[in-house]
Design a protein around this nucleic acid. Sequence first.
DNA 1: CCCCAGGTCGTCA
DNA 2: TGACGACATGGG
Length: 280
Amino acid sequence: MIEITINKPFDLKSTLECGQAFRYIQESDDSYTVILKDRVINVLLKDNVLQVTSSNYDDLENIVINYFDLNRDYEAINEFIKNSDSKMIDIVDSCTGFKNLNQDPFEVIISFMISINNGVSSISKSINLIAERFGTELEFNGKTYYLFPDSNMLKDVAASDLRECKLGFRDINVYEYIQKVNNGEEDINKYFNLSSNDAMIEFQKNRGIGPKVASCVLMMGYGKLDVFPIDVWVKRAFKYIYDTDNVNEITNITNDLFKEYSGIAIQYMFHYMRNIKEEV
DNA sequence: CCCCAGGTCGTCA
DNA sequence: TGACGACATGGG
């Protein structure tokens, strides 16, 4: 086991359970088992110490710190957002300790393509089925886990295989995307180097990737915090806070107020609306 | 049975 | 541009 001292607010539960991650298990001791790109970890937050066990200890501390985005100065970001609009003070304070996870881009792309018009439990089920059929098996704490496969491991997968993983009508979109990655037509690393605007445009040239999927992928897979998804929950938040649910107005207000941290501000609104103001 | 799920796409005005 | 229905599948 390794221990990582956390000297800033960190809400492990809401960070994992807010809808950005699909492959975690809450254990009976309130620890979480999380399947990362190349290993399985178990994390338990005790006071200000994160206790981590893993199937692989190579560079584990750096990998965990990067995954949970623990080196970023969220206190400064939160102050910036609150100073941008006093209406955000309560919302930001209700999300203290939330982090934007840094996840594997390929897995995030496929996961959010599957998320289209789908429920969280069905999304997780499909992702797990793909991992079980095509990913690498490994043992951890006496249990069997399956890593999510990389694009090369999926090169011979047929659309019908994906349909068997319960992707429904999304199977052809995912199939086409995997083909493009494997034949070199699509380079998933290029998005790291593109501006957020260009990356949004490029991503949406792929069938099955619209503005919602593209923005989620760029936030969670590429660490771009100036992009933001607008979904039904964000619209509800804007109706409540700014009295509009028009997408163009939401985009303009968000960019004007929150600038390079728009994605974080929108995540806070999403989380606030979904989990805290449940009966409004 | 009907409706919805962190949408996207094609179609028709 | 902008509105509208279809799309597989599982759960309430």
